[in-house]
C-alpha cells in the first residue's frame, strides 16, 4: 500500500509540474508577439493614448515575470482576461470577458465529448477484445482493414460523407448541429447525432486497434501460457489471469483516445458549426485574439494532461505487482 501511495504522489507531482511548464509556454506566447500588434488590434484610427492605455491594460509595461504571476493568479479566481475583439481605436470597448465567452461553449463541448465517450468506449473495448480473441479470423481481418482505412482518413472527410448520406440524400439527421441552452435534452441529442457519429467512428478505430494490440501482447506473455498449460479454462484465463493485468493498458488506451477526442472535437465542431470551444478557438486564431486562444489552449492542454495522469494512476492502482512488493 505504501508503495502505491508514494508512486501516485510522485506521478501527481510530475503532472502538476508539467501543467506549470505548459502554462509558462502558453503565457510565453504572448511575449513573442511582434511589437506593433496593439496597433493592429485597435485599428488604424487608434490614437497614441489609446495604444498606450491598451498596452498598460494588458500589462506590457510590467516585467514578464510579474505578468505571469498576475495571469496565473487571475486564472485561479476564474478570471481569464478580456477578449481582444470588440475593441476600437477610440478607447470605448465592447470587449467581453473571456470566461464569459468560454463557459457556455465549454459545457457544449463537454456534452458532445461525453456522449461520444459513452458510446464509443464500451463498444471499442468489446470489439477490441473480440478481435483479439478471434485473431486472424475473417471477422478480425474485415474489422482491421476497415479501421486502418478510417485512421488514415481525415476527420472532415468522414464528417462530410455522413452529411452527404444522412443530412442531404436522406434527410434523417440535421447537418448543422446548432444547439442552444433552451433545447430539451432529446432535441439536443438529435441535433448532435451526426457529429457524435463522426467522432465515434474516428475514435473507435484507434481505440479498438490499441485494445486489440494490448490484449494480444498480453496473451502472448509466459504466465498466460503457464496458466494454459496448467489446464485453466479459457474463461478463467481471461478473467482471472489476463484481465487484472489488462486494466492498465486498457485505461491508457481509453485516456489516450479521450485525449485524441479533445483534438478531434476542433475539426468536427467547425464542420457541423457546433457552438463549442474548438470552434471558438479556431475563430480566435483567425482573428488573432490572443487571450481567447491562450485560455482555450490552456483548457485543452489541462484536459489532455489530466486524462493522461488519470490513465497512469489507474495503471498504478490496478497493477497487481505493486500490491505485493518484494
Amino acid at each position: 500500500m505504501q508503495l502505491i501511495v508514494s508512486t501516485i504522489l510522485r506521478r501527481l507531482a510530475l503532472g502538476l509540474f508539467t501543467l506549470l511548464i505548459v502554462s509558462f509556454i502558453i503565457f510565453g506566447g504572448m511575449s513573442l508577439l511582434p511589437g506593433d500588434f496593439s496597433q493592429a488590434i485597435l485599428g488604424q484610427a487608434a490614437t497614441e493614448e489609446t495604444v498606450a492605455a491598451f498596452r498598460k491594460e494588458i500589462g506590457l509595461d510590467q516585467p514578464a515575470i510579474t505578468r505571469y504571476f498576475n495571469w496565473v493568479g487571475a486564472i485561479f479566481q476564474g478570471n481569464l482576461g478580456t477578449s481582444f475583439s470588440g475593441r476600437s481605436g477610440t478607447g470605448q470597448t465592447q470587449a467581453r470577458e473571456v470566461a464569459e465567452l468560454i463557459a457556455p461553449r465549454l459545457s457544449n463541448t463537454l456534452f458532445l465529448a461525453g456522449v461520444t465517450a459513452l458510446i464509443s468506449v464500451p463498444l471499442a473495448i468489446m470489439l477490441g477484445l473480440l478481435t483479439a480473441l478471434y485473431r486472424n479470423s475473417v471477422f478480425d481481418r474485415t474489422i482491421n482493414a476497415a479501421t486502418l482505412t478510417t485512421i488514415a482518413t481525415p476527420d472532415f472527410f468522414v464528417a462530410y460523407i455522413l452529411i452527404l448520406f444522412f443530412g442531404s440524400l436522406w434527410q434523417v439527421f440535421p447537418s448543422l448541429a446548432n444547439v442552444d441552452a433552451t433545447m430539451s435534452l432529446g432535441e439536443r441529442l438529435y441535433r448532435i447525432s451526426l457529429p457524435v457519429m463522426t467522432l465515434c467512428l474516428v475514435i473507435l478505430a484507434h481505440m479498438m486497434r490499441m485494445t486489440r494490440a494490448a490484449i494480444i501482447s498480453l496473451l502472448a506473455s509466459p504466465y498466460i501460457e503457464m496458466a494454459r498449460l496448467s489446464g485453466a479454462s479459457q474463461r478463467e484465463i481471461i478473467f482471472k489471469h489476463a484481465l487484472p493485468n489488462a486494466w492498465a493498458p486498457i485505461a491508457t488506451v481509453v485516456a489516450f483516445n479521450l485525449a485524441y477526442l479533445v483534438v478531434g472535437v476542433v475539426v468536427v465542431e467547425v464542420v457541423f458549426v457546433y457552438p463549442g470551444i474548438g470552434q471558438l478557438m479556431v475563430d480566435a486564431v483567425t482573428s488573432r485574439d490572443i487571450p481567447v486562444v491562450q485560455a482555450c489552449c490552456l483548457i485543452f492542454a489541462a484536459t489532455y494532461i489530466i486524462l493522461n495522469l488519470m490513465a497512469d494512476i489507474i495503471g498504478i492502482v490496478t497493477n497487481p505487482r505493486l500490491l505485493h512488493p518484494r
Binding site: 479533445v262 476542433v266 489552449c297
Partner: peptide, 8 residues
Amino acid sequence: MAIPSLIF
C-alpha cells in the same frame, strides 16, 4: 508532447 499538437 504534453500539449496536443493540433492545439499547440
